[in-house]
Write a protein that binds this DNA or RNA. Structure first.
Length: 521
RNA sequence: GGUGCUAUCGUCUAGUGGCCUAGGACAACGGCCUCUCACGCCGUAAACCCCGGUUCGAGUCCGGGUAGCACUACCA
């Protein structure tokens, strides 16, 4: 009988959601959707010391922005930032599941799969200093302070006294543990290299990841665990845990995803790489209330969620064939775990920019105008308002249509369209040197006269008036037009000249030529 | 140090024993277009980690090296 596909994304609220985590969430989501299954969101907050306020809200908002839908667990209430819990396998925050874990810790203790240990962190530290490569396991536990070495009376006394303790998993030595991984195949690890992992700590009355993770995945009926490769080494431990609980027959399938690596050099992609190389490592901007740092986000940098999704999907997964552009629906249809690469992928954000360029072109001028309007207004506010011309969305959409193919991001539009709204006050030196000739003042003075006589101000009329004039005078099209362009734009760049005069109108065009004549040289 | 995972252009990757003279995309470079800058189009350069083995034939299978990465906490 086929089991219903249920996957989970289980982040820790220790800060902004890393882009690698986003990809893990995405692959889980694609897998769930493809199989008509459920995507769960669980918060793994068993380390109270690392909790960062706002992180949980951040994670949910980021997933919502990216279009990664949650079916069960914690999610944003539709259209709001409020958090709601849906489903009947809750609670979905591990810190709220204490009583549940108590029961399972006891089960392991009673069945002899776990034991109580009183060694203090200081004692363990000392042991590690004393013995190279010290590991708490079958070879060493007999020398430690635990319920295996102490008498029952002593253990009870310590417990009654309120001594801090942990519960450790009793790993049986010298056993080959097989883990079946959907991406990597069979992985075999000998239990000798595993240590007796701490499953529960009395100090904060919380389990560690390993215990909570197995208990929750079992109780929540998770069918596939799709997570980062950093978990591969502890997968055998998890298998042993499933067996100890007697859940081996319903143990989920595992798939360990390759890691996202630094663009340059070696190692895992980190927050610092983003700062160093100038690109976001997080989906949304994050203000860390704990350490006061601010991290830039893809959303605030002008990325479209579709572009981020497309980019991320292809970092570690690729179908046969040459398709590069994928909608979420296409990804859901085509994604498969056996086409996920086994090796880590360097995070090359140049490709990300290209994807954004592609998606930007797909948006209509009106949509882009809507997005660009606030950026434009902000820039104009920062300039002297009196130099700004009237702006309305129709004009903004029009100039965006003229320039959008040359930008990757909406905010970059400003550099392309600013001269439509603000007359140049200075003229680019390089452009002048190359395009402003000795005769240019004379040409512009004559052109000015010619243009003053044009009543029907549009591209066709202007072209039909100016071109023959240039030809007749033998001035050269490039010489005149480039000088004209400098007058209007302030530099040798921008769209076709008649497209510019069209938006500027007769009055403004003439005014700019006059101003240039006065200012240049 | 130990254990595990991985290994095709600078980067993401296609390739599942003959279709590979190794394909696509990003980036780079060159050209075309053109009143400018871009976009776009066309093109160039660019890779099978090394050594053995299996086979008529290996990027593809096997072994050994090497390298990279991950893990090795009362963090996840």
């Amino acid at each position: 009988m086929e089991r219903r596909v249920r996957v989970r994304f289980a982040p820790s609220p220790t800060g902004a959601l890393h882009i690698g985590g986003v990809r893990t969430a995405l692959y889980n989501y694609l897998f769930a959707r493809q199989h008509g299954g459920d995507m769960l969101l669980r918060i793994e907050d068993t380390d109270s010391t690392r909790f960062v306020p706002g992180a949980e809200e951040y994670i949910l908002e980021a997933l919502d922005w990216l279009g990664i839908g949650i079916d069960e667990g914690l999610r944003q209430k539709k259209g709001t930032k409020e958090i709601e819990a849906v489903g009947n396998h809750g609670p979905y925050r591990q810190s709220e599941r204490r009583e549940i874990y108590h029961q399972y810790v006891k089960q392991l203790l009673d069945s002899g799969h776990a034991y109580i240990a009183f060694d203090t962190p200081e004692e363990l530290e000392a042991k590690r200093n004393e013995i190279a490569n010290f590991q708490y396991d079958a070879r060493t536990r007999e020398q430690m302070c635990n319920s295996l070495t102490l008498s029952k009376e002593e253990v009870d006394a310590r417990l009654a006294r309120g001594d801090k303790y942990v519960v450790r998993f009793k790993v049986e030595p010298n056993e080959d543990v097989h883990v079946h991984d959907l991406i990597r195949g069979e992985v075999v690890i000998n239990s000798n290299i595993l240590d007796d992992k701490v499953l529960y700590k009395s100090a904060d009355d919380l389990p560690t990841y390993h215990l909570a993770n197995i208990v929750d995945d079992h109780l929540m009926e998770v069918s596939h665990v799709i997570r980062g490769e950093e978990w591969l080494p502890s997968a055998p431990l998890h298998v042993l845990l499933y067996r100890a609980f007697g859940w081996a027959d319903t143990m989920p399938e595992f798939a360990h995803l390759p890691l996202l690596l630094k663009p340059d050099g070696n190692g895992k992609l980190s927050k610092r790489d983003g700062d160093r190389l100038g690109f976001p490592v997080f989906p949304l901007e994050f203000h860390n209330q704990k350490d006061g740092t601010v991290s830039s986000g893809y959303r605030e940098s002008g990325y479209f969620p579709e572009a981020v999704i497309n980019f991320l999907a292809l970092l570690g997964w690729h179908n046969t064939g040459d398709q590069e552009m994928f909608t979420m629906d296409e990804l859901i249809q085509q994604f498969s775990l056996d086409r996920v690469s086994k090796s880590g992928a360097k995070f090359d954000f140049e490709k990300g920019k290209w994807f954004n360029h592609q998606y930007l072109q797909l948006h209509s001028d009106d949509e882009l105008a809507e997005l660009f309007m606030p950026v434009l207004e902000e820039h104009l506010r920062n300039l002297n308002a009196s130099t700004a011309r009237d702006i309305n969305k129709t004009v903004v959409a029009k100039v965006i249509g003229l320039t959008k193919d040359r930008v990757n991001f909406v905010p970059e539009l400003w550099e392309q369209v600013n001269f439509f709204f603000v007359a140049p006050t200075e003229y680019d030196e390089k452009s002048l040197k190359k395009r402003w000739k000795e005769d240019s003042p004379k040409h512009m003075t004559e052109l000015l006269e010619l243009l003053e006589g044009v009543n029907d101000w549009n591209a066709e009329t202007l072209d039909a008036t100016v071109m023959p004039w240039i030809e007749q005078k033998e001035y050269g099209v490039g010489i005149v037009m480039n000088a004209f362009r400098i007058c209007l734009v302030g530099a040798a760049r921008g769209p076709h000249i008649w497209a510019i005069t069209d938006v500027l109108g007769k009055e403004e065009t003439l005014a700019r030529v006059r101003a240039a004549l006065k200012t240049i040289k």
